[in-house]
Simulated scan of single mutants.
Amino acid sequence: MKIKLLIIVTVLIILILSITNNRSIVDDDYKILLSMFPVDEQGNGLELKASIPSQQPMTYGLVLASESLHYKYDKNKESEHRIKNAVNWITENSDANQDGNLGWGLPQSFDAFADGTINPENHSYTITTAIVLDGLMDSLSIDNFWTEAEEKEIKKIVSEVILYWLKEVYIGDDDIGYLGYSPEPTDMIYTPNVSSMFLSSLVRIITEHDGIFNESDKQFVLKRTHAIANKLVNTVHFKEGIPYWDYAEYLDDREIKTNDLVHHIYILWGIEEYRNKFDEVKIPFSKEDSIASVDSFWKENRIFFYPQNQVYIGDLELFNERPSNLWGTGMMLAFYAKYDYKDKADKTFEVINNTYGKIPRLTVWPVDYSNNKAFYARYAAHVLFGLSYRDFYNE
């Protein structure tokens, strides 16, 4: 009897050590990639078509979200330092263009819809603001981390951003509506991915961080949250029973294109967050259908820029061969991992690590597709975000 008990205990110890060792190896991917984001300048990096590095709010938001998950899993000094540095930078740069309205965008000028209207440096964008808000909320979700004064200041900024966007960057009414691409009048175009990522922030604020709004503002935010979800549901279309959206709802005769991978998952991110917390607006597809739509970007063990359950013809013929860029694969990894599709997440990371260079020096495009071998932090931060969900979120 004693011998049998000793054997059982020994086997259990071996299993525990094996699991621990495997997890340590997995964690190394995250930590090695994290080293590419300097502790004191975590959002600083090269951008495509730019010759000098810049401080990118989106990168700060993604690193902040990733390190908040990391710290909740493993309370370590480096992550503590990184979280506080990121929040400090984000709060200090919440009105970088000094127009009196809080939000985050791009430090470089940008023509959002290639219509000749160029937004200036530090112009705020809905997608960037949504990603930064999610990072701030991840940091607020850490127990006993912030002082009362620090937490109050973060919540003040979050509430001010939300109320401004829902009052001034919103098109519609209390029943159905959307957020413009940015506050610029020529950018007030329905682009589902930006509304949906912002929807994720709204859902989390209402359900996870009580007390940010007074009761009147909370009801206002809640109505607009349901209205945005309603717009997304009313603009979905289906192919083989799985959901897709057009990239934008243009008011002129520009050609409508489907979403590439990163923007498709931005949409699913918000819709599924809404499904998790609310049932006011009925979603006409299942979570499994959402996963199937992500699966449609795969073909022959490669990840593509556009869905591969159709053949593109004419001017779109190149879409048949165009691989996903790095931030698309990073968001794919995050989405699979968030909803506990571990095998799919592991397969995604295997493709990233074998096709887009090697951790940590990942490339924007697969190495057999482009000669550009530079490291672009904002793209790689999506992979870091994905790894944080794979390694820490469900553990």
Score class of each variant (00 low, 15 high):
E78K: 07
D173A: 07
P107D: 08
N259G: 09
W146L: 14
D260W: 05
R254W: 01
K49A: 12
H263N: 15
V383R: 05
Y247E: 13
P192T: 08
I228Q: 03
E272I: 09
S68V: 04
I7W: 01
R82T: 03
D252S: 06
I352D: 06
I90V: 12
L232R: 05
L362S: 07
N21L: 09
V39P: 02
Y379S: 15
L268T: 09
G211D: 05
V9I: 14
N22F: 00
Y312C: 06
H70K: 13
N119G: 00
E350L: 07
K223G: 12
S18E: 07
E208G: 15
S18R: 05
K75L: 09
F145E: 05
T117I: 15
Q308V: 08
A377V: 03
K152G: 06
D246M: 14
G43A: 11
T348K: 03
N234I: 03
P360N: 06
I352A: 08
M197W: 07
K167F: 01
E78Q: 09
P53E: 14
N119T: 01
E80T: 06
V262Y: 07
E350N: 08
F213G: 00
L232C: 06
T191A: 14
V236L: 07
E121S: 15
F349R: 04
L140D: 07
K77H: 09
I313F: 09
K152F: 05
A292N: 14
D217T: 08
G100I: 01
I142Q: 05
A112G: 09
I83P: 04
N354Q: 10
S94C: 11
Y71I: 07
L333G: 05
S141R: 04
Q219N: 13
I157L: 12
F220N: 06
G100C: 06
K239Y: 02
N119Y: 00
D289P: 00
A334E: 03
S54N: 12
V262E: 07
I127W: 02
S79H: 00
S124C: 06
K75Y: 06
W104H: 08
L62G: 13
R390W: 01
V236F: 00
L318G: 15
L69M: 11
T235I: 02
Y170G: 13
S182D: 03
T126V: 08
N320W: 01
A381H: 02
A65E: 11
K239D: 15
I52H: 11
K77V: 13
Q55P: 03
Y306M: 13
D28I: 07
Y178V: 06
R378V: 11
I283M: 04
